[in-house]
């Protein structure tokens, strides 16, 4: 090897040791994340085992929750969790996908452009940028919906939504009470206000993922549809939506997982009543709300039972989230593959 006053030299001992150590450190922490993920599941499931042995599957099918008599079962909570999430998903999907289309398919920019055209400023150096800016602003606003803490939504639901919907609920129950959905009256907290707030909370997830999926659809596909004489909406329904459908679906599944696990808004709005009812106006309860309400006052004996309930929630959300993450990941890699 050359000598002289050489600058280039092989990595010094310190550098080599640092490099090996740092790489080992990073790998170690990655293992740590994997271990944490496993421990989270194990910790909850293991803590639930005594209660699982004691109460068995009857815990899932009974309807009584009476700590004084040591009788526990959570069918109403399972029902309430699924019912509220499905209802919220229906509203959230409708509005969320609409907003995703509005933002991703250029409607926002077009609308602003049309407005500018009226005052003939559409090519103005400053105002001409407005269409794009408004589109960004709107999508940021929708994402802002996701940033607001759920407890604030709960507060808002308590003092705004419940008073707002109550007269309508009275009327619907009085006149259309024979429909099961309106079978009871809204006496304050209940399923409907909880569902309204829940759908607002999951909407940004659906919009953000849906918008991403729509934007990922190659322009050439849209052009092909336009070239065949499709209207904008025919192109959307025939080409864009089907192409993006898997990504949008993944977003919906993830939103479903979020709705299932959402706690505060429900604990504050759903009424915490051990009731199974299809009525939108009846109070109900969910697994997460049960945990939130019962845990702080739980005796050591009750903790096991609550861990059982937590395990049920864990299993449900884990299944849904794994499905959602899988769909989103699969779709992403599929579209990436298309680019190459």
């Amino acid at each position: 090897m050359p000598t002289e006053t050489q600058i280039s030299k092989p990595p010094s001992r310190t550098q080599a040791i640092t490099d090996t150590a740092f790489r080992a450190l990073c790998q170690g922490f990655t293992w740590l994340v994997a271990v944490i993920a496993v421990i989270i599941v194990l910790k909850i499931v293991l803590a639930a085992l005594p209660a699982v042995r004691q109460y068995g599957l009857g815990f899932l099918s009974g309807q009584v929750w009476d700590p004084n008599k040591k009788l526990y079962s959570i069918l109403p909570e399972i029902w309430g969790t699924l019912y509220s999430s499905v209802l919220a998903l229906i509203f959230g999907t409708a509005f969320g996908v609409a907003a995703a289309l509005f933002l991703a398919e250029g409607f926002t920019a077009d609308a602003v452009f049309a407005l500018l055209k009226i005052v003939n400023l559409q090519f103005h150096p400053f105002w001409g940028k407005l269409p794009v800016q408004v589109e960004n602003l709107l999508s940021n606003l929708i994402e802002l919906l996701a940033a607001i803490p759920s407890v604030v939504y709960g507060l808002w639901g308590l003092f705004v939504i419940i008073p707002l919907v109550r007269p309508a609920c009275h009327w619907l129950h009085a006149d259309l009470g024979w429909i099961p959905l309106f079978g009871t009256d809204l006496s304050g907290p209940g399923m409907l206000p909880a569902v309204i707030v829940l759908s607002i909370m999951i909407l940004p997830t659906i919009t953000a993922i849906g918008r991403g999926a729509l934007l990922a659809v190659p322009t050439r596909l849209r052009m092909a549809a336009y070239g065949l004489g499709a209207t904008r909406w025919e192109a959307i329904f025939a080409v864009t939506l089907p192409t993006a459908s898997r990504g949008i679906f993944g977003g919906i599944v993830l939103a479903f997982g979020r709705a299932l696990g959402e706690t505060m808004a429900l604990a504050m709005l759903v009424g915490n009543a051990n009731v199974i009812s299809v009525s939108l106006f009846s109070p109900a309860n969910t697994l997460a709300a049960l945990l939130a309400n019962a845990f702080p006052e739980a005796s050591p004996k009750d903790v096991g039972v609550l861990m059982y309930a937590a395990t049920v929630l864990l299993v449900i959300t884990l299944l849904v989230n794994v499905a959602g993450a899988y769909i989103v990941q699969f779709t992403a890699s599929e579209l990436e593959g298309e680019k190459v």
Binding site: A34, L291, F295, A310, T317, N321
Partner: peptide, 15 residues
């Protein structure tokens, strides 16, 4: 695991 944990119910983190 990270992607699944993103949707992990916050109440269960408390549990």
């Amino acid at each position: 695991a990270g992607k699944v944990l993103t949707g992990f119910p916050s109440i269960l983190a408390g549990v």
